[in-house]
Nucleic acid binder design. Structure first.
Length: 874
RNA sequence: GAGCUGUUAGCUCAGUUGGUUUAGAGCAUUACCUUGACAGGGUAGGGGUCAUCGGUUCGAGUCCGAUACAGCUCACCA
């Protein structure tokens, strides 16, 4: 049969993916088997696949495929997230490019545009995942804003409200003036900024010509000042006690208050207090009952309290006010200053601390079982270093601001009554009934009620994900949720440990009284060669689909996984995909070799092949055991490397070379059948990592029935194996290596047969293998080697290859001298250890025994080397 | 600023309760090989005073302390 010498993934991948789909091999329904469940971290519905998704989903696919091949009923639930801020921002931008302003649209009109956008772009990312080979149960695809998920969200909101855990309140929130919404603390990134520190002069009310000097980075906020604060223990500002000062430009008189919050050392020790625009000032404001002056509009421009600056943007005002203060002689000096400014994670504009009415969820009690679960290892984090981080956050958890001033999302199910007050209910009808009861007015109509304008934070829907994808909120006793929950593994990025993972754990205990998953595998961040995070704005991220078309999905999957220990960042390098592709080609060519042989049932199995089969059988068994252990520990990179070496070094370089028949000669049936069996096992072990090529070759390995697939085959089981055989074979590997080294050094072609002399203890059971692998004509046990032989040691046995007159005595002596020096140095260290009475007295007996053995070994080796040197010098 | 991780070959990482020859792997690199599965290949090499200093111990990459550097998390001085 004719097989191309290079593997071409493009011909193979789509074909088998379609085959898997056609045969419904990804689909899972509850049955009597043990379930194994993963819910996908839902990507943004209008998002595009990036390298982080590639890594994340490759890992999930490996886990789910391996579980499926281990006899479990594996279910991987895919889906997308409505991503309220990100999606709304995209829709707003798209409308703006068409000359439409959001403010000119009604809520309904805007949502129509948003849904249109979602339908157009939504799901692209899921199609891209298919290219990667993701074996998701597509029949179960969910969306955080589809009907069932929306119903779940509202139901949970109402429930938490009725439990008294959701409340409404005026709080200082992080305001995003671009998205015009509040953000949770987790959505704010602090960045170092090069700014200025302005020293402003506040005139003291009753003392002519006297000033209090105040340092600030935000001079535009003086218009909202309602006090100046000093530390009561600050001698240099003691003269200000009880005085009043005039806010520059605003010409308002404000009191001087005293609080030890103020840092005496910073600036002048005088702090301007702007309760509406700074979290700490707000606390001071509450404490001293100060007036609150909000000077900003929602978009970051100044309002009427901004006086002459009303209507201007906050940053323009900063520049202008600097000039105006300068002119008024109220600016003492300006210094360069570096400080940290909070930026919106979504829109990347500086956030503005702002007072506003928001909805909050009380977290303290909810967090307790979630903290306990992780600390007591009911839920395992991989790597476990994140336990500390998790604990720190959970122990200091603050109430969660769950409202967002957006339209794209789940609208808060709170309804305001005409006469004030509100009711909370899943639907308008239920709200109306409650409202009639509350108001005592049976004639109240639904049109009299006004629903809250805000939406819920996106995470308020995704925190229910492991439950809601099985409809476990709406129907808490349905067969799916009972079977698939708790899920097994969650694979996600550490960046969203608090946003998402922690909150899912909380929701799991609140709504199922059980953990939502057993293990959390935290991937690293994919970085470029310079160590920068891959991002769209930097343009340093390769296009995953291009990579797939260049290296094949299997090649890219392997490239992603080769250097990604859990929790470690992944320094991505295309070379790794190349390595993956090369490995594909290696597998392909091994297959080509095996399938190219002619089988002759009449010939006997050569002795060397019999030995090889036994040896590889044991090697395979040992590797399966090790592999299992690595998977239990979630050491996937190492697991891949282990199978890689098994296939490349042990199977291709050793086993196949051992059993390979001579050119154009047939192979015996016994060996051939064993080899096909090995190939079958190897493909199965490789399948979770490289699904496509393994399916292609498995299908070609033997005649298959329609619908059969490697992906539902069972992995080879762990079996006992001959450890003694493997350790003996390690010596054989050494001998083969030694002879090859001699060939290389003496420049002896492989075609030229050699003989091998053995001096010392030796088991000849493997002679046929050595003879074949090294092209030897004989192996002879001798008591003294031939003069002019090159020799080496393996264990304490000496092996010599007679070379006639070919030997270079000088070179040989030099080599032996080097070895002698090493051995003597080694012996010295061992002897010193054994000469130490304390060591002999204190160390465990087996350790001392081992040292003695090392000593004896070294001594006999030294003796052999010395003899060789003496022989050469004759 | 506080806390938590980490620092092992050019690169990415293993190294399990301290002892298994004087520390391993993959990639990269070097030399040689090339009609017969695979040059996207084969064979064999080279490459590390385990960040630094000190301590515990018969014995430290491994345990303890300090320092330096890096990363992460939290908090934040206007």
């Amino acid at each position: 049969m004719e097989i191309a010498s290079k593997y071409d993934p493009s011909e193979v991948e789509d074909k088998w993916y379609q085959y898997w789909l056609d045969n419904k091999l990804f689909h899972s329904v509850p049955d009597e088997r043990e379930p194994y469940t993963i819910v996908i971290p839902p990507p943004n519905v209008t998002g595009v696949l990036h390298m982080g998704h590639m890594l994340n989903n490759t890992i999930q696919d490996i886990l789910i495929r391996r579980a499926r091949m281990s006899g479990k009923n594996a279910c991987w639930v895919p889906g997308t997230d409505h991503a309220s801020i990100a999606t709304e921002a995209k829709v707003v931008a798209k409308l703006a490019s068409e000359g439409i302003q959001k403010k000119d649209l009604t809520r309904e009109q805007f949502l129509e545009h948003a849904w249109e956008w979602t339908h157009k772009h939504g799901g692209i990312i899921l199609e891209q995942l298919k290219k990667l080979g993701a074996s998701c149960d597509w029949d179960r695809t969910c969306f955080t804003m589809d009907e069932k998920r929306s119903e779940s969200v509202l139901k949970v909101f109402v429930d938490l409200y009725n439990k008294g855990l959701i409340y409404r309140g005026v709080r200082m929130v992080n305001w995003d003036p671009k998205a015009k919404t509040a953000l949770s603390d987790e959505e704010v990134n602090y960045k170092e900024q090069q700014g200025k520190l302005y020293y402003l002069k506040y005139k003291i009310s009753d003392s002519e010509g006297a000033f209090a000097v105040i340092a600030t980075t935000r001079p535009e906020t003086i218009l909202g000042d309602t006090a100046v604060c000093i530390n009561p223990n600050d001698p240099k500002n003691a003269h200000l006690k009880g005085k009043k000062v005039i806010v520059p430009l605003a010409d308002r008189e404000v009191p001087i208050i005293e609080d030890d919050y103020v840092d005496i050392e910073f600036g002048t020790g005088c702090l301007k207090v702007t309760p509406a625009h700074d979290v700490n000032d707000y606390m001071l404001g509450e404490k001293y009952n100060l007036e609150i002056l909000d000077i900003f509009n929602d978009d970051g421009t100044l309002n009427q309290y901004g006086l002459q600056y009303a209507g201007m943007d906050r940053f323009d005002v900063r520049k202008q006010i600097e000039k105006d203060l300068e002119e008024a002689g109220l600016l003492e000096k300006v210094e360069d200053y570096t400080n940290k400014v909070g930026f919106s994670e979504r829109t990347d504009v500086p956030i503005e601390p702002k007072l506003s009415m928001q909805w909050f969820l009380k977290m303290e009690e909810l967090a307790k079982p979630a903290l306990k679960a992780v600390m007591e290892d009911d839920i395992m984090l991989y790597p476990s270093k994140f336990k500390n981080t998790y604990r720190h956050w959970m122990e200091n958890i603050k109430d969660w601001c769950i409202s967002r001033q957006l339209w794209w999302g789940h609208r808060i199910p709170a309804y305001y009554l005409p006469q004030g007050g509100f009711v909370v209910a899943e639907t308008g009808e239920k709200a109306l009934a409650l409202a009639r009861e509350k108001s005592g007015n049976p004639d109240l109509q639904i049109s009299d009620l006004r629903q809250d304008e805000d939406c819920l934070d996106t995470w308020f829907s995704s925190w229910l994900w492991p439950i809601s994808v099985f409809d476990g909120i709406n129907r808490p006793d349905n067969p799916d949720i009972n079977y698939y929950y708790p899920t097994d593994d969650l694979v996600t990025a550490p960046e969203i440990l608090f946003f998402w993972v922690a909150r899912m754990i909380i929701a799991g205990y609140e709504y199922r009284h059980d953990r939502c998953f057993k293990n959390v595998y935290l991937t690293g961040i994919v970085r470029d060669k310079l160590g920068r995070k891959m991002s769209k704005s930097l343009g340093n991220s390769p296009d995953p689909l291009e990579l797939i078309s260049k290296y094949g999905a299997d090649g890219v999957r392997m490239g992603m996984l080769l250097t990604s220990a859990a929790g470690n960042d992944l320094p991505f390098d295309e070379n790794l995909c190349e390595q993956g592709r090369n490995f594909n080609n290696k597998i392909w060519n091994a297959f080509r070799l095996v399938k190219g042989w002619n089988v002759d049932a009449s010939i006997q199995q050569p002795e060397s092949s019999g030995v090889a089969v036994k040896w590889f059988d044991a090697t395979l068994a040992k590797t399966i055991e090790e592999l299992n252990d690595l998977f239990i520990k979630y050491r996937l990179s190492e697991a891949l490397m282990l199978v890689y070496k098994l296939f490349w070094d042990e199977f291709s370089s050793r086993y196949l070379e051992m059993i390979k028949p001579g050119y154009r000669l047939p192979i015996d049936k016994k060996t051939y059948d064993a080899t096909l069996g090995f190939f079958d096992s190897l493909l199965k072990l490789l399948h979770p990592f490289m699904p496509f090529i393994t399916e292609e070759l498995w299908q070609a390995l033997e005649e298959r029935k329609p619908g059969e697939s490697i992906m539902i085959g069972q992995l080879p089981k762990i079996m006992s194996y001959d450890k003694d055989l493997l350790s003996k074979f390690d010596t054989i590997k050494e001998i083969i290596g030694g002879i090859r080294t001699i060939r290389l050094q003496k420049n002896i072609p492989n075609k030229e047969a050699l003989t091998l002399q053995v001096i010392g203890e030796y088991d000849n059971a493997f002679d046929p293998v050595i003879l074949k692998m090294c092209n030897l004509s004989s192996i002879d046990k001798v008591s003294e080697k031939s003069p002019g032989a090159a020799s080496f040691l393996a264990g304490t046995t000496e092996y010599a290859v007679p070379l006639g007159n070919n030997i270079n005595v000088e070179e040989e002596l030099e080599k032996l001298d080097k070895e002698l020096v090493y051995l003597q140095g080694f012996l010295k260290s061992v002897t010193a250890k054994l000469g130490n009475e304390k060591f002999v007295a204190n160390a465990k007996p087996e350790i001392v025994e081992n040292e003695r053995k090392k000593q004896a070994d070294a001594e006999s080796k030294i003796k052999l080397v010395k003899e060789s040197i003496a022989t050469l010098k004759k």
